[in-house]
Design a protein around this nucleic acid. Structure first.
Lengths: 337, 337
DNA sequence: AACGATGTTTCAAACGTTTGAAATAATAGC
DNA sequence: GCTATTATTTCAAACGTTTGAAACATCGTT
């Protein structure tokens, strides 16, 4: 009933050899005699020796930890992206620490400081929607810790590494799909204007219209701030004009779309059953919907996460120079239900 | 453009004082002159001094980190429970490291070892569904690190700390609710038999029937292994007998319930619209369902998480002796939709 | 018997902190 | 002007590792 962890020193004393021999034996140094190695390793596993990570990290000046800061864990996009990151990280001997900002700048700064103290070897971050100032992230780069931004595109131009969803392409594809199904009046329901990709998505929508010779109508576009009331207001606007009643809808994010559809059903929109909707997300619960959206724009979060981690690992291995800023886009995929 | 983190030594040299003075000034020791403190603190923040956590942890023999091992982050139960844990932990100066086992024993052991090396101060764990052997967790207690099991009840009896959902009470309430709405043929769709609370839930169901004088019928009970096929088989069984067609259903977990409802709708079950269902979970997407279950059993994961963390903190502060094993149950709440 | 060569182990410093004890400085009392 | 007291700073060891350099052991050559 030992109450304190076994150390190299303990092992050394029991085996009557020096600490360095024990250390080297455990790390399989070629200069150490094979028989000695066996003796050491046997005792180590017998006593459940577990090296003290703090000591190693301190000595080595690295932590083998990747920090991840993201808004929250309730959005499946993020949890799925974590999956991609973790897989790759652990394959390269890194662990991850996840910290939620809850989309609050204050908390994001706290998380950053925590990870700075932890001396993470690298940082992957989906910034909060309020982040305009980036000094809390610059601190990492100042000490040589690479930072990769993902999903949420920071507002400064160029001088950072980023991995983004090709959200333009996603919106384009969805719009095109609806056009090809014969729709002319396709509405676009956008998200908060402060989020970077709100505009990219809008552009995808616009370009698809243009490429197919469909005139753009401002009456078919509205924005919501994510909350239910604001979504309903937007939807009311979209469906209020006499001449251009939407027959299809592309929405910024599925929960918004669901709110919209629920509302439209509740007010008995004429031709509700004919209305064809597509949102970003591909939420797994769509399977259970009674009248699901016709398709979803799958953003492949696992792949986004994996790409972000891959880039970070390349930066850590100096396969890519830290100031050779990269921008990677991961394509979306239209999933028809 | 400094490329290495600022240390106490740097500060000491710049200020021409000893490292200990700097350290004590930053830690606000009463013996240090106020003016000195100010000088030190000013320079520290000017140079963005960030203490090296590895060094502190090593010196202090603790990490101020709580390890959390759980099956996955895709289940909202777990992400919501994390919220409760994190809140409380950070209030007490602890950070958390989350590690997913993906319900695979192998990965759970890996996670445990990682956290053991990290020398977490405490561990909270929802065991994988295959965990029978607990040696990888006993290693923590051997070195005095308290372990709290939550949600998933380990199979050994008594000698561990645990925080569980009062899943018996949840099932009881749901069943009672259905009885009071006039149902006599209430089916129970259970989960995998290896998961501890499958049986507790069944017992809740049984006791509610008994307390209200409704005879138990084995034909109204079936089990699924979580996958869709197995759920459908179970549902077929439940609805196959002539005399006892269920008019209500209590299900082990909402996704299972959704699969079941989807199937029943697809085969045009007579009186499908009258069928009243309740599942464990209270998934937020139920809001968007066209014909939602009549109610949900809300397991209050935030509260479960918070209670687990609270217990762990009490163990860390020695407000509760480590071998004074605690069992805490958190009540469920029936949410009518 | 002395000499390398080779194989194996140990020494000792370092990583960045913390902290009790010791040293020094400043001040007051007489 | 000396001592006692108090305020402030510094010393030095320690936490558990890693690792290049140095030390030691063994053995075959000549």
């Amino acid at each position: 009933m030992q109450n304190t962890p076994v150390t190299l020193k303990h092992l050394a004393e029991k085996l009557k050899m020096s600490i360095s021999t024990v250390s080297k034996a455990l790390n399989n140094y070629p200069t150490i005699n094979e028989f000695t190695k066996k003796r050491v390793q046997d005792l180590a596993s017998e006593l459940h020796f577990t090296p003290n990570k703090s000591a190693i990290d301190l000595k080595q000046g690295r932590s083998k930890i990747i920090g991840i800061i993201l808004p929250n864990l309730l959005d499946h996009f993020f949890t799925r992206s974590i999956y991609g990151m973790e897989q790759l990280a652990s394959k390269h001997g890194y662990n991850v620490i996840i910290s939620q900002s809850h989309d609050v700048l204050e908390k994001e700064i706290q998380s950053a400081n925590m990870l700075l103290q932890t001396r993470v070897d690298g940082l992957i971050v989906a910034i909060s929607k309020h982040t305009q100032d980036f000094t809390h992230f610059n601190d990492f780069e100042k000490i040589g810790t690479p930072v990769v931004y993902y999903t949420r595109n920071p507002s400064f131009n160029g001088s950072c590494h980023k991995v983004l969803c090709n959200t333009f392409q996603g919106a384009y594809q969805a719009t095109k799909f609806l056009i090809e199904r014969g729709h002319q009046n396709i509405a676009y329901l956008g998200g908060p204007k402060m989020i970077s990709f709100t505009h990219d998505r809008f552009n995808g929508y616009i370009h698809a219209l243009k490429d197919h010779g469909i005139p753009f109508s401002a009456e078919l576009v509205a924005y919501t701030d994510f909350d239910k009331e604001s979504t309903i207001t937007a939807i009311k606007n979209l469906f209020s004009s006499e001449d251009t009643i939407p027959t299809a809808l592309v929405a910024f994010k599925e929960p918004i779309l669901f709110d919209a559809m629920k509302y439209l059903r509740s007010v008995n929109l004429p031709n509700f059953e004919q209305l064809e909707c597509i949102g970003f997300g591909n939420n797994s619960f769509i399977n259970y919907f009674n009248s699901p959206p016709i398709a979803s724009i799958e953003e492949n979060p696992e792949s986004v996460g994996e790409n972000a981690m891959k880039l970070l690992l390349q930066l850590l291995n100096r396969n890519i120079e830290i100031n050779n800023y990269q921008k990677i886009q991961v394509d979306c995929k239209l999933v028809v239900h």
